[in-house]
Simulated scan of single mutants.
Amino acid sequence: MIEIKKYGAIDIGSNAIRLLVSNVIVQEGKETQFKKSALIRVPIRLGADAFVSGIISEENVSRMIDAMEAFKLLMKVHKVERFKACATSAMREAFNGEEVIKKIFEKTGVKISIIGGKEEAAIIASTDLKELIKGTNSYLYVDVGGGSTEFTVFSEGKMVTSKSFNMGTVRLLNNSKAENKEIFENVERWIKKNTKDLKRISLIGSGGNINKLFKMSGRMEGKPISFVYLNAQYQFLKQMSYQDRISELSLNPDRADVIIPATKIYLSAMKWSGATKIYVPKIGLSDGIIKSLFYETL
């Protein structure tokens, strides 16, 4: 007997808003499978509002309302049974964040939960990593978003510690050099402190930017990217203009700028932890939301 459930996850990030629709395949005597059915990404950069002016603009509130209405229709077509919407760093910090989610609920019926950094890290860490983290090796899981980056240390198949830092790509683009320097120094201290006694450590990277970098590398799924390759790619991207990254590399306009600070974060984490390679499974906050929805029903 096989049962297929359909769940939806809405991830309201600082650089984009995403809808993930997944099939949850339940079969007696077998492990539950989570298969992605559709992923829709809308480039509404809330972080450009929240991290500069401190409020979500009326224009972006209107765009969010339209996006939620569109997502509702898409979920209806996909016959989604249950869904959950979570907002992260930009909405956490916007002075009008609570007001915005109330307005969106009144207009669309979509209830949005603004989650804290620790909760975000916990949801991400709950994603299916067991195939990667099994054995005696150690891993530093790095999920880079627009407003924050979540770091989780795994050793011998278990989570050791986790922390969220205000080190997101959109935030770094809008901060002063002094602010960014301080953030990087704080993260460096944390990573070195929590990885110093670990041997054979590798990175696990998630987020849209590392997925794009992995795709550009031409590597087979499951194979890691080396520090040497990623650093060479970073230097190559930096020397190109924003326009050239769009026209020559076919990057989306809202990806062509943030990919630079994102690559720097991954490289820095590799350097500070001593990792020489980074694995890139296709997982993130939305995958964690789907899993949490399923386990809530058990």
Rank of each mutant, 00 (worst) to 15 (best):
33 Q>W: 01
88 T>A: 11
238 K>M: 08
222 G>I: 14
251 L>R: 02
178 A>Q: 09
164 S>N: 08
262 A>F: 07
248 E>A: 09
199 K>C: 00
40 I>G: 07
114 I>G: 12
92 R>T: 15
50 A>P: 14
185 E>A: 05
35 K>W: 07
73 L>Y: 05
248 E>F: 08
81 E>T: 01
267 L>S: 12
98 E>G: 06
159 M>F: 05
102 K>C: 09
269 A>W: 02
48 A>D: 09
72 K>Y: 02
61 V>E: 15
136 T>L: 01
194 N>I: 06
150 E>P: 06
77 V>S: 12
295 Y>W: 05
159 M>H: 07
38 A>C: 01
62 S>P: 03
280 V>N: 14
134 K>E: 04
209 N>Q: 10
93 E>P: 02
37 S>I: 00
298 L>V: 05
261 P>F: 12
277 K>F: 10
278 I>K: 05
254 D>M: 00
12 I>K: 04
138 S>M: 03
4 I>W: 15
218 G>P: 06
78 H>K: 09
156 E>V: 03
132 L>Y: 13
188 E>F: 00
68 M>S: 04
129 L>P: 14
208 G>C: 13
180 N>R: 02
131 E>G: 12
231 N>D: 11
78 H>G: 05
278 I>M: 15
153 V>S: 07
101 I>N: 14
287 D>Y: 02
252 N>G: 08
285 L>G: 13
261 P>V: 12
206 S>P: 04
161 T>A: 14
279 Y>F: 15
172 L>S: 02
194 N>Q: 09
258 V>G: 02
5 K>N: 14
146 G>Y: 02
108 T>V: 07
18 R>L: 08
5 K>F: 15
187 V>P: 02
260 I>E: 06
271 K>D: 07
237 L>F: 13
19 L>E: 04
44 I>N: 03
228 V>Y: 06
19 L>R: 09
180 N>K: 00
199 K>M: 00
158 K>H: 11
158 K>R: 09
109 G>S: 09
51 F>M: 04
78 H>S: 14
54 G>R: 01
11 D>M: 06
236 F>C: 01
289 I>F: 11
155 S>N: 13
130 K>H: 13
178 A>L: 08
119 E>M: 07
16 A>D: 14
269 A>Y: 09
47 G>Q: 00
81 E>V: 00
116 G>H: 04
279 Y>E: 12
247 S>A: 11
252 N>H: 12
166 N>L: 15
212 K>Q: 15
6 K>E: 07
42 V>M: 06
59 E>D: 10
46 L>F: 04
194 N>L: 08
84 K>T: 03
200 R>S: 03
63 R>H: 03
65 I>D: 10
107 K>F: 00
87 A>R: 01
40 I>Y: 15
279 Y>L: 11
69 E>Q: 13
211 N>W: 05
50 A>D: 06
